[in-house]
Design a protein around this nucleic acid. Structure first.
Length: 507
RNA sequence: GUCCCCUUCGUCUAGUGGUUAGGACACCGGGUUUUCAUCCCGGCAACAGGGGUUCGACUCUCCUAGGGGAUACCA
C-alpha cells in the first residue's frame, strides 16, 4: 500500500515554524516514499478559525514551494478536505459510537465544567467556595478532568433528554481498567494505563461540531492515511485516538511523533522568541530555501558532512530513522548563516529580482522598476551578493545608487593621522584620477590609485576612505570602484565636489 | 500533583560495543583584502551522574537528576 500522509493545520493563526516543520517532514516523507501528501483543513473550532488564516496558509506554502497531491484547492478522491464541509460525517460516526455503547451523551453544561481549572489548588478552592455544588462537581476526584458524571445515565433516559432538546455533548467511554499500547515509529512502544487517559473526552461538541479527536480519527481513516507524523505534544492524545480506532474496529495509521522545536530558553517556540510566523521570515528578507534547509535539519540529519540541501535533495534523502528524539533549539544565528549561503548561491539575475521588492519597499525604486532602475539594480547585484545576510540589507547597502547621500561631516572623512588639508589633497587627487582614467577597468584604476598614493606618501585606504564617504555617504560600502562604475562617474563628481567644499571650509 | 517523552561541544548534529568521539553554526586567533563582507587556515569546546551487563561501554540495562510536553466543548 502506498504511503499517504497529511498536514492537517487548524486555520486559527498564521502559519508558524512549528507547523511548517511538521508539514515539511510529512512532505519529505511522502516524497521520499513516492507517496501522497495531503492537505486537510481542521477548522472545527468555529470561533477561532478565520478565512484570512486559510489564505495565509496557501500563501505560505506557495512561497515555500510545497505542493500537495490532494487538498481543498486541488481536490482529490477522498474529499472534501475541509472539515467544516464534512460536518454530517462526524455526527454520524459519533452516533455510531453511542449506539455501540462506546460513547455517551453528557448533559453537564459548560458552566459546571468551568470549575475544573487546571490546577488542584484552584480546583479545591472552587470546590470549597461552592459547597452546594460539591456533590455535582464535574471535576474528577483526582482533581483533573471530567468526573464521568453522565457516563452512568441510563441510555434510554439519555435518549429521552436528547429528544426533549436538552443540550448535550457526546463523550468517549475510556475503559476504566487496562492499558493501551501503541508503537511509535520513532519512540518505540508506548503504553498508557487507561486510568491515565483523559477521562472521557468530548467527541462531539454542543454546537454539533466534532472535536479534534473525533474529526482527526474519522478523517485519517476515511482518507486512508497510512502514517501520522505530528509533534510530540500530541503524544498524550495518542492512546485516546488508539482507543477510538479500537472502538470503531479500524486499523490505526502508523504514528510518528516528531521532536518539538524550542526557543533559546528551552521552552516551546513561540512569539516571544522572535519571528515565528513564516510570513515574517519572508518579510525580513529570508530566502525560502534557507528556511527550508534550516528547518529540515532541526531534529533530523541527512548526509553527514553536508550542510546545504535543496527541497529536492531533502525529498530524496529523508529517512524516519534519521529523526532525533530530543527536542531541538531554533537558532536564528545559524539560520542567518544559511540565508547568507543561499543569497550567495543566487545568480545575479535571481538576486536582482529578489532584491527589487525590498528596494521598492524602501522607496528607492518603483514597485515596477523603470528600465533605468532595473539596469541599476542589475549592476548593483554583484556588488552586494557577498555582503548580504538578508534581502532587507539591500536598501541600506545600495541607497547611494538611488538617492543622493547627505554631504558627510568633516571628521567622518578624515583618515587616521591626516588633517583636513591632507585629506583635501587626497580627495582632489582621487577626483583627478577618476576624470582621467574612469572606472571601467577596476584593475587599472586601482593600480593608478596605488601609485598615486605612494607618491603622496599615504596609504591607498587614506585616499579611498574620503572618496567612499563622499560618493556613498557611508564608511561601509561595496567595493568603491565598482560602486562608482555602477553609479556613473558623472554622478560621482558633484558629490566629491561637495565634500571637497566642506573639507576646504574646515581646513 | 499525575502521566508521558527526552539527555553527545554554547547550539544543530554524526556516531548503532573497541574512534585521537567527526562535521556545521557561534566564538577566539591568523591569512587574503579598498571599508564592510566573502573566502582560506588554525584553535577552543561534549558523551548529565551513579549502579549493573561485558574482556571492553557514548553505544545495552536500571536508578537518580535535569529538561520538555500533556492534563479543554483549542488544535
Amino acid at each position: 500500500m502506498s504511503v499517504r500522509v497529511r498536514y492537517a493545520p487548524s486555520p486559527t493563526g498564521l502559519q508558524h515554524i512549528g507547523g511548517v516543520r511538521t508539514a515539511l517532514f510529512n512532505y519529505l516523507f511522502a516524497r521520499s516514499m513516492n507517496g501522497s501528501f495531503i492537505l486537510r483543513l481542521e477548522d472545527t473550532d468555529r470561533t477561532r478559525s478565520k478565512d484570512e488564516y486559510v489564505q495565509n496558509l496557501y500563501d505560505t506554502f506557495k512561497w515555500l514551494g510545497f505542493y500537495w497531491d490532494e487538498g481543498p484547492d486541488v481536490g482529490g478522491p477522498k474529499g472534501p478536505y475541509i472539515q467544516s464541509e464534512r460536518f454530517a460525517l462526524y455526527r454520524e460516526y459519533a452516533q455510531k459510537l453511542v449506539d455501540m455503547d462506546k460513547a455517551y451523551y453528557c448533559f453537564c453544561g459548560q458552566a459546571k465544567l468551568d470549575q475544573k481549572i487546571a490546577t488542584p489548588a484552584a480546583a479545591n478552592a472552587a470546590a470549597v467556595a461552592d459547597v452546594d455544588s460539591q456533590e455535582d462537581n464535574a471535576q474528577a476526584e483526582s482533581g483533573y478532568g471530567y468526573n464521568r458524571h453522565c457516563r452512568s445515565i441510563d441510555p434510554a433516559e439519555a435518549q429521552r433528554r436528547v429528544d426533549a432538546g436538552e443540550p448535550y455533548v457526546i463523550r468517549l467511554k475510556i475503559p476504566l481498567e487496562g492499558s493501551t499500547k501503541f508503537t511509535d515509529l520513532l519512540l518505540g512502544d508506548i503504553e498508557w494505563k487507561n486510568a491515565d487517559v483523559n477521562p472521557d473526552p468530548v467527541l462531539l461538541k454542543s454546537d454539533g461540531f466534532p472535536t479534534y479527536h473525533l474529526a482527526n480519527v474519522v478523517d485519517d481513516h476515511t482518507m486512508e492515511i497510512t502514517h501520522v507524523m505530528r509533534a510530540q505534544e500530541w503524544i498524550p492524545s495518542a492512546p485516546l485516538h488508539m482507543l477510538m480506532y479500537q472502538a470503531f474496529g479500524w486499523t490505526p495509521p502508523k504514528l510518528c511523533h516528531l521532536p518539538m522545536v524550542l526557543g533559546q530558553d528551552g521552552q516551546k517556540l513561540s512569539k516571544r522568541h522572535g519571528a515565528t510566523a513564516v510570513d515574517e521570515f519572508r518579510k525580513k528578507g529570508y530566502l525560502k530555501d534557507a528556511l527550508i534547509n534550516y528547518v529540515a535539519m532541526l531534529g533530523c540529519s541527512y548526509e553527514d558532512g553536508r550542510d546545504l540541501f535543496s527541497l529536492e535533495d531533502l525529498s530524496r534523502l529523508f529517512k524516519i530513522e534519521h529523526i532525533n528524539k530530543a527536542p531541538a533549539v531554533f537558532d536564528y544565528v545559524k539560520l542567518e548563516w544559511f540565508n547568507g549561503q543561499y543569497i550567495r548561491q543566487l545568480t545575479l539575475e535571481q538576486l536582482a529580482g529578489a532584491m527589487t521588492p525590498y528596494l521598492a519597499d524602501a522607496g528607492l525604486v518603483q514597485a515596477s522598476p523603470t528600465p533605468i532602475e532595473a539596469a541599476l539594480i542589475a549592476q548593483a547585484a554583484p556588488l552586494v551578493r557577498e555582503r548580504l545576510k538578508y534581502l532587507t540589507d539591500a536598501p541600506e547597502a545600495l541607497r547611494f545608487l538611488f538617492a543622493e547621500p547627505a554631504v558627510p561631516a568633516v571628521e567622518e572623512m578624515l583618515p587616521k593621522k591626516l588633517d583636513a588639508a591632507a585629506t583635501v589633497r587626497c580627495l582632489t587627487t582621487a577626483r583627478a584620477l577618476l576624470v582621467e582614467i574612469g572606472v571601467a577597468d577596476h584593475d587599472t584604476v586601482e593600480a593608478a590609485f596605488r601609485a598615486k598614493a605612494e607618491e603622496l606618501g599615504c596609504k591607498l585606504g587614506d585616499m579611498l576612505m574620503p572618496l567612499r564617504m563622499a560618493v556613498t555617504g557611508t564608511k561601509v560600502s561595496p567595493p568603491l570602484f565598482e560602486s562608482i562604475h555602477a553609479l556613473g562617474v558623472e554622478k560621482a563628481l558633484p558629490r566629491i565636489d561637495k565634500a571637497l567644499a566642506v573639507l576646504q571650509a574646515a581646513g
